[in-house]
């Protein structure tokens, strides 16, 4: 199905947000996940299913400044 990930349309397998993170090899502790402008608790990643047209944001930590 089609979803938008960080602003870009992508074809992904149906499944949970945790499945999507695994497929993308993203460590869940390293990212904050927003679906359709709503922050998703880490504990809900495994139980929240992707829907066609969802807008997903993977927000990575950005440190640095020096």
């Amino acid at each position: 199905m089609q979803v938008k990930i960080n602003g870009k349309s992508e074809e992904v397998r149906s499944g949970t947000l945790l499945d999507l993170l695994k497929a993308k090899k993203i460590e869940p502790q390293m990212v904050a996940v927003e679906v359709n402008d709503k922050m998703l608790e880490r504990s809900h990643l495994a139980t929240t299913h992707l829907n066609e047209g969802d807008q997903v944001e993977f927000l990575f930590y950005m440190g640095g400044g020096r």
């Binding site: 390293m30 930590y61 640095g64």
Partner: peptide, 18 residues
């Protein structure tokens, strides 16, 4: 509100490496 806690130190690269 977005990033609850600092990332686990083991997974973080240092500035010098990055």
């Amino acid at each position: 509100c977005v990033f609850k806690t600092p990332p686990p130190p083991g997974l973080v690269a240092s500035c010098q490496e990055a």
